[in-house]
Amino acid sequence: MSDDDDEFEEEVSRDEVATGPGEAADPAWLVEAKMPADLRAKYEIYSYRSAATILAESHPTEFQELCEALREFEITKTMIRTAGGNESDIPKLLSAALRPKGWHETIIRGDLLVKLISRVQVGVQKNGKPKTEQRTRTIRREKYLDGHKVDYVKGRVAFDLEWNSKDQTFDRDLYAFSAFAQTGVIDVGVLVTRGGQEMTEFIKSLGQSLTKEGEPEFTKRGVPRMVGAKYGASTTWMGKLLYRMNAGRNGACPVLVIGITPACVVD
């Protein structure tokens, strides 16, 4: 990839960042009314399409289990600094809290059955009026929905965590939420990711990154690799998610957006 390509990607990446929720988001007072104060102090929380209300009022069991998991969620500076990608210790923390309670990885698949009902003229009556019959034709589109996956589903609630993937992963998640909602499988989705500017600055302050073995990490040129370089502007963080939420990429699915902040770091 040329330097011009790198500069172009960085420019596009900067344009696709939102500094806060847009007009599509629910008012802040709704989040304050439905989300516990201790979680609002620990995370950035935004609601779209009344997600906070639907989750708290219509699905109290799932709501309480998610709240408990988020309260227990604690990470360390070492976790943030250590290489590991999607298999890092951070996503495993929520898995340990939710899997035993019945939050399962779920894939949706389905065929589309379409009926075309027509009124067809088959002749003429004695009085000269057309004689018609109703005829039905069925079209079946197999695998109309196939492969949309959500990492955690329980009842009619979907939940996912994106700590440090490519930001296009958000499009996949939101499309999956929308597909689940349109088919009546879920009522609401919850998406957790790294928080916004405060969390970004905190990560940059952590200095040099670590290998999986816990040793200081260096680039191929022998230069110390800084933690901030692992968590770039084109990875999954709140600015990239809010940009998509403000643009309505969640479709008709209500989504509660939660950002991990430095308040989750215990050391």
Results as ranks from 00 to 15, higher is better:
81 R>E: 04
19 T>H: 11
128 G>D: 10
3 D>G: 00
78 T>G: 13
260 I>L: 14
149 K>C: 13
66 L>R: 03
240 K>N: 14
103 W>G: 05
197 Q>W: 08
98 L>A: 08
236 T>W: 02
39 L>C: 09
231 Y>L: 05
219 T>D: 08
197 Q>T: 11
68 E>D: 14
192 V>P: 00
202 F>I: 04
221 R>P: 00
176 A>W: 01
65 E>I: 04
126 K>C: 05
184 G>Y: 02
126 K>Q: 11
247 A>N: 13
136 T>L: 07
115 K>H: 11
194 R>L: 12
21 P>M: 01
69 A>E: 06
3 D>N: 06
117 I>Y: 00
115 K>D: 10
97 A>G: 05
8 F>T: 10
103 W>K: 04
120 V>G: 03
257 V>Q: 05
143 K>F: 11
248 G>H: 09
190 V>H: 04
198 E>T: 15
188 V>S: 04
12 V>W: 00
147 G>E: 10
249 R>Q: 15
69 A>R: 05
253 C>G: 02
78 T>F: 04
79 M>A: 07
233 A>C: 04
43 Y>P: 09
11 E>C: 02
267 D>F: 09
208 Q>V: 11
131 K>T: 03
213 E>A: 15
167 D>M: 04
49 R>L: 11
99 R>C: 05
172 R>C: 06
194 R>P: 07
44 E>Q: 15
212 K>P: 03
177 F>D: 03
227 V>M: 06
138 T>N: 07
216 P>W: 01
245 M>A: 05
115 K>I: 09
34 K>I: 00
36 P>N: 11
258 I>N: 14
85 G>Q: 10
235 T>S: 15
9 E>T: 12
123 G>C: 09
135 R>C: 12
89 D>T: 07
6 D>S: 10
250 N>D: 06
129 K>W: 04
68 E>V: 09
185 V>W: 01
17 V>C: 04
223 V>F: 08
187 D>R: 05
201 E>I: 00
114 V>K: 14
3 D>R: 06
212 K>F: 01
245 M>R: 08
97 A>N: 06
